[in-house]
Computed example of a mutant assay.
Amino acid sequence: MSVLVAIPARYASTRFPGKPLVPLKGLSGRSMTLIERSWRAARSVTGVDRVVVATDDDRIREAAQAFGAEVVMTSTECANGTERCAEAHEALGGGFEIVVNLQGDAPLTPPWFVEGLIDGLRGAPEAEIATPVLRCDGATLNSLLADRREGRVGGTTAVFGTDHSALYFSKEVIPYRAAAYEDADATPVFHHVGVYAYRPDALAAYPTWPTGPLETLEGLEQLRFLENGRKVLCVEVQARGRQFWELNNPEDVPRIEAMMAEMGLE
């Protein structure tokens, strides 16, 4: 099955304007922009036929082309990354059997997350979209809780049924937990990894669906699928010793740089 990876990137982020062009230093101190690191993460995934950056901003286009990325220009009217991926797939003439949305704020996404996601969607013909989830250890859960206490959105959590069909996604930390957890403990909370794999028919239909109240309240694009009765498959992935965090706020820059240094990533 042919696979397209699209990296949606916009300059006008509400929480962090210009986020795709923020520099991130690796272990050696070398800086690369967030969008370049996300593109390199996409390029490391096996079984992918094409990788493009999808943007509406000339500054991002110029930066991406400078490091060798293929760029698809999309409209300023796209409400979120899924709509931008739908527009990019159409602009390329369609024809891909799976379209992966690797969001441009997840430079620490290891290739096996995306490979597992693609395999999961291939193995679940009833699903129209799949997305990875990662069980939180106590350290990650405590970081999520600290962000919420301080009024920041530090990540998204997911709950799903026994068949791994998503029940809900939230920027709050769900489900409720009565216990406290040490850093190395396994917890019942799953961190949603901001990557999606779509079947093209569902992706093309997505921009035609109305934005529902849950998507509006949470600001989470994947809730439009749930609010329209579509099956979202949660694919559990394994960290294999890698740390994962998304760049949501300016405060995340030193956190991600420290993680890259600790993991020996350039």
Rank of each mutant, 00 (worst) to 15 (best):
S2K: 15
A6L: 11
R10I: 12
Y11D: 13
S13H: 12
T14A: 08
R15T: 10
R15G: 02
F16P: 00
P17C: 03
P17Q: 11
K19W: 06
P20F: 10
P20D: 10
L21A: 14
P23V: 10
K25T: 07
G26C: 08
S28Y: 11
S31D: 12
L34A: 10
I35V: 15
E36G: 08
S38C: 15
S38F: 09
W39K: 05
S44T: 02
V48T: 07
V51I: 12
V51N: 06
D56I: 02
D57P: 00
I60W: 02
R61C: 03
E62A: 14
A64Q: 00
G68H: 08
E70P: 06
V71P: 00
V72H: 00
M73L: 11
S75Y: 06
E77A: 09
A79P: 00
T82R: 02
E83Y: 03
C85S: 12
A88R: 00
L92K: 00
G93R: 03
G94A: 07
F96G: 11
I98V: 15
V100Q: 08
V100C: 05
P107G: 09
P107Q: 01
L108K: 03
L108G: 00
T109L: 11
P110A: 01
F113L: 01
F113V: 00
V114T: 15
G116M: 01
G120C: 12
G120S: 12
R122S: 09
A124N: 12
P125F: 09
E126F: 06
A127H: 09
I129Y: 08
I129C: 13
A130H: 05
T131H: 05
P132N: 02
V133T: 05
V133K: 02
R135A: 09
G138W: 12
A139I: 08
T140C: 10
L141G: 07
L144Y: 03
L144T: 02
L145S: 05
L145Q: 12
A146I: 08
R148W: 09
E150L: 13
R152Y: 10
G154A: 08
G154L: 02
G154M: 05
T156R: 07
T157M: 10
A158F: 10
A158V: 14
V159N: 04
V159T: 14
F160N: 09
F160W: 04
F160H: 05
T162G: 13
S165K: 15
L167M: 11
F169Y: 14
Y176H: 13
P188H: 00
H192A: 09
V193W: 05
G194T: 09
V195F: 02
V195Q: 05
V195K: 01
A197Q: 06
A197T: 06
R199G: 06
R199Q: 04
R199T: 07
A204E: 09
P207A: 06
G212W: 11
E218I: 05
L220Y: 04
E221Q: 06
F225M: 13
F225D: 11
N228S: 15
G229H: 14
G229R: 15
R230W: 12
K231D: 11
K231Y: 14
K231A: 15
V237F: 04
G241D: 12
F244Y: 15
W245L: 14
W245P: 02
W245D: 07
L247G: 11
L247D: 12
E251T: 10
R255T: 14
I256E: 10
E266F: 07
